[in-house]
Every structure is written in structure tokens, then in C-alpha cells.
């Protein structure tokens, strides 16, 4: 070995320092804390939640699935507001085509096309993602109304729909199964697959990603296609379960999915976060919703609570806390010695 230089930052040895480093590297802290707090409170006030496990998992799947796709986009520092109406439009597509064997692929294909159009405006034209996807949100909700003639549409094959709502085994309904498949697929994609891992680079330092030869635009396309596909899948699930598609479906999806992703520690400016975090965020919200429902709390109040949680989550984001603490610190110190506590 030739000469070396020690600059600090070497690997910690010993179990506890190691453990501390590992925990320090995770991003899911807030989600875990919120989940634990909710579970602890419920253990005393609403223990029923723990017995209603199938319901709770179903709820988590409902909230979480769109959030998972959204997370792929957020990791790159982009937003996809169009998820809500992608869900509604794909749900309508499933209902208006009589043959489910054609309807489901058509709906999923629509999700992919939506992703491609979003990414086109964002990566090629250069429009900020929130505004491009906002236009898309609006246009697609219009499309959902057009396709459905502004009324709820029942699916032709009611039996298939009813069967879809039944558990496959144990408490696992197709919805829950699909949710976990999506979770595993995206989780593996962003942690194991090179293209997925590069999402973090695209979000964390886009210039560096370009300079290293990462095809940034192609990654943005991939991200929005994932998000479009997953929300279309959610639309398919909604419609099949309810056996009817409404053009206004998914009105609170935007709120719940952003809340789940942000609570889970996904940094809105990109580069920091995890799919597991989103799962934890969705779990907190799902458990909370079931508990509120069991306690007889009305839906508007539930929405208020989730809105409040989202607001708190977004202003306690590390960069927001830095901003506010910098502001406080910039005004306070007018002393030269550390004062006694």
C-alpha cells in the first residue's frame, strides 16, 4: 500500500455507533413516530382497530397505492398532480368498455400515455411539473366526464366486479395483493435497479446527474409513466370493487397520497426519501382513518385532520425547519458568550 491520508469519516466500529449511523441514514423517522403515536393512542382509546385488521389493511392499500407511484416522481423532485383524475378517467374507461379483457389493458395503457404526455411537457418542453400536471389534472377530469356522459357508469360484468371484492385467501383481497405487488415492484426498482437508483441522483443534484451521463430526461419519463400507470391501476381497482365508475372518483386521493408520501419522509425537492417511508405514511393515515371511522367521526372532520397532518408534515420538512430556524437564529443572538441554561 502506498501512503494514505486520513480525513475523518471512516467506518464506525462497535455495535451501537454502527446502529446509530444506520438509523441516522434513514429518512422515515417522522412517519415511524407518527405511526407509533397513533398506535399508542389507539391502544387505549380504540383497541377495536387491532381486531379489524383486514379493514385496516384494505384502507392502507386504498390510500397507499397512488402514493407509491407518486413517490417515484417525488424522489426526482417533481410533482404529479394529475394522479387524481388519471384514477377517475381510467376507472371510467374500465366501465365503458364491456369486455374486461380489453377494458383493463386499455385503462392501464391510458395511464402510461398520461405519464408520457406529462413527461413530454416537463422534460422536453420544460414546464414546471406542478403546472404541467395541473393542466393534465384538469383536462383528464374533463375527459372522465366526457367519457361517462357526466353520470356514474356501471360495469357490464357485475359478477367479475363482485368477485374482485372478495378475499383471495385469508384477509387478502385482490386490492391488497395488488398494493403489495406494486409496493415490492417499486421498492425493488428504486433500490436495486440502476435506472431506479438514479432517480435519487436526478432529484438530489440534477446537474451532477447530467454530467455523469445519466439520461435525466429518460428517467423523468420513467417516473411519470410509473406514476400514471399506478394511478390508472388504482382507478381499475376502484371501479371493479364498486362495480361502478364515477367521473368524480378520487377527489381526496390527491390529499391522502401527498400526505402519505410527505409524512413518510420524502423530501419534496427530491433526492431524499424511500418507498418504505411512503408505506409507513400510508399506514399511519389508514389506521387513523379506520379509528376515526370506528369512533364515529364524520368524513369532513377526517379530511380536516389529514389536511392538518399534511400541513404539519410539509412545514416540518428538514428544509422548512432549516429555513425557520435560520430566521429565528438570524434575529436572536446578540451575545458573545454561551449563556447558562
Amino acid at each position: 500500500m502506498t501512503e494514505t491520508i486520513q480525513l475523518g469519516g471512516a467506518k464506525e466500529t462497535g455495535f451501537f455507533p454502527r446502529l446509530r449511523t444506520i438509523i441516522g441514514r434513514r429518512t422515515e423517522g417522522r412517519g415511524v413516530i407518527l405511526l407509533l403515536v397513533i398506535l399508542a393512542v389507539l391502544a387505549f382509546t380504540q383497541p377495536l382497530v387491532f381486531t379489524a385488521l383486514p379493514v385496516t389493511i384494505g384502507r392502507i392499500a386504498l390510500i397507499g397505492i397512488v402514493a407509491l407511484g407518486l413517490t417515484a416522481v417525488i424522489l426526482m423532485g417533481e410533482l404529479d398532480l394529475s394522479v387524481a383524475s388519471t384514477l377517475a378517467a381510467s376507472g371510467v374507461v374500465v366501465a365503458i368498455i364491456p369486455d374486461l379483457r380489453i377494458a383493463i389493458p386499455a385503462a392501464l395503457l391510458m395511464g402510461i400515455v398520461v405519464g408520457i404526455i406529462n413527461a413530454f411537457f416537463i422534460a422536453i418542453v420544460g414546464i414546471a411539473s406542478f403546472i404541467a400536471s395541473l393542466g393534465m389534472l384538469f383536462a383528464l377530469s374533463g375527459l372522465a366526464f366526457v367519457l361517462s356522459n357526466e353520470v356514474p357508469v356501471s360495469i357490464a360484468n357485475q359478477d367479475a366486479g363482485l368477485a374482485f371484492g372478495q378475499p383471495l385467501f385469508g384477509p387478502v383481497t385482490p386490492r391488497i395483493l395488488l398494493f403489495f405487488l406494486v409496493f415490492i415492484a417499486i421498492q425493488l426498482f428504486v433500490t436495486k435497479v440502476k435506472a431506479g437508483r438514479e432517480f435519487f441522483a436526478v432529484g438530489g443534484n440534477r446537474q451532477a446527474a447530467y454530467d455523469s451521463g445519466i439520461p435525466v430526461k429518460r428517467r423523468i419519463f420513467t417516473g411519470f409513466i410509473i406514476s400514471g400507470f399506478v394511478s390508472a391501476l388504482a382507478g381499475v381497482i376502484y371501479t371493479l370493487e364498486l362495480t361502478v365508475a364515477t367521473p368524480t372518483a378520487g377527489s381526496t386521493v390527491l390529499l391522502a397520497s401527498f400526505a402519505a408520501a410527505i409524512i413518510g419522509g420524502n423530501y419534496l425537492k427530491g433526492g431524499r426519501g424511500s418507498i418504505i417511508g411512503t408505506l409507513i405514511g400510508a399506514s399511519s393515515l389508514g389506521v387513523l382513518q379506520v379509528a376515526l371511522f370506528l369512533s364515529g367521526v364524520q368524513v369532513p372532520v377526517q379530511n380536516t385532520l389529514i389536511g392538518a397532518i399534511l400541513l404539519i408534515a410539509v412545514i416540518t420538512d428538514p428544509s422548512s425547519l432549516r429555513a425557520i430556524s435560520a430566521r429565528v437564529r438570524a434575529t436572536l443572538p446578540d451575545r458573545t458568550k454561551v449563556e447558562a441554561q
Partner: peptide
């Protein structure tokens, strides 16, 4: 090693 620097590979 080629540039003779030691640092934890998993550190952010």
C-alpha cells in the same frame, strides 16, 4: 485505495 483515501462507503 488507488488515491489512498479511506472513508465509509455507506456514508452519505
Amino acid at each position: 485505495e488507488e488515491i489512498g483515501v479511506s472513508v465509509d462507503l455507506d456514508e452519505r
